[in-house]
């Protein structure tokens, strides 16, 4: 069987495509960086990763313009067909604006947003932990993680606070869309572990089918020993307890 191919999408203003491509490569995925001018090649891929950055300079709202980019026509069609889609940081904002997660409304009619941080609307750059908040099998990308898995990552965003109406937040809870919450290293969840006052302590959302995952923090920035806070963990270049856990699970999902 041919190795699954992953497209790491680049919109004008994306800036995390290289480390995202590298971590996909280092967990054994055949991945390419695909720029917006090559959108027509996207149907050739088996999965899509939308990395961080400031696509279209966050004009109008973070994720609003790229959600309507021709690249997203392919990604939305692929997601509806069951292919895996992972959005990280700005990629998560795009996935939300495209209506793929939580997916409780029509496509490109968002019912939630990752918006300005609270309580003070400042950019946050902080080491954080993500705790899996659903049954691992609820989302295909997390299926290989253990229950209540805690994954280290770096939050680096000015607009990462989940916001929605009370009804839509309830839909997120009832529908099992809350994939990851912010936590302490020991897995306890509270306001102090949440760097941006995100509703429900939300760090990541999935859709009804569980093939799309949007996470605000960057696990790829805590994946190798050179950027993992506990440096020199083992002899491998990858830090086994780092953010690589999520990408290993992503690779397993693609190869299973």
């Amino acid at each position: 069987m041919a190795s699954p191919k992953v497209a790491v999408l680049v919109f004008p203003g994306t800036n995390s495509e290289v480390e995202t491509w590298r971590i996909c490569r280092d967990v054994g995925l055949d991945s390419d960086v695909v720029h917006w001018s090559r959108a027509q090649t996207l149907p050739d891929y088996d999965a899509y990763v939308l990395p961080g950055g400031f696509a279209y300079e966050d004009r109008i709202r973070a994720g609003a313009v790229p959600a309507h980019d021709p690249m997203m026509d392919y990604v939305i069609e692929a997601a509806q067909g069951g292919k895996l889609v992972l959005g990280i940081c700005n990629g998560a904002q795009i996935v939300l604006e495209a209506g793929l997660v939580p997916g409780t409304g029509p496509v490109r009619k968002p019912t939630a947003a990752f918006t300005k941080n609270g309580p003070v609307p400042h950019f946050v750059c902080k080491h954080v932990y993500l705790k899996l908040a659903v049954d691992p099998g609820r989302c295909a990308i997390t299926a290989a993680l253990e229950r209540d898995a805690v994954i280290p990552a770096w939050a680096a965003h000015g607009e990462g606070r989940l916001a929605a109406t009370t009804d839509h937040l309830q839909e997120i809870v009832d529908g099992g869309h809350l994939a990851f919450v912010y936590a302490h290293a020991d897995g306890t969840v509270d306001e102090r572990a949440t760097p941006n006052a995100s509703a429900l302590f939300c760090a990541g959302l999935t859709n009804k089918a569980g093939n799309v995952l949007a996470i605000m923090p960057h696990p790829e920035r805590d994946a190798w020993n050179f950027n993992h806070p506990r440096r020199r963990e083992g002899t491998d270049i990858l830090a086994p307890s780092g953010g690589v856990k999520l990408f290993s699970a992503f690779a397993k999902a693609l190869k299973s």
């Binding site: 109008i60 709202r61 609003a64 313009v65 309507h68 604006e97 490109r108 968002p110 019912t111 939630a112 947003a113 918006t115 916001a163 929605a164 109406t165 839509h168």
Partner: peptide
Amino acid sequence: ERLLCNPAIE
């Protein structure tokens, strides 16, 4: 409706 406003936050 199509672009300028996200009713979840605006």
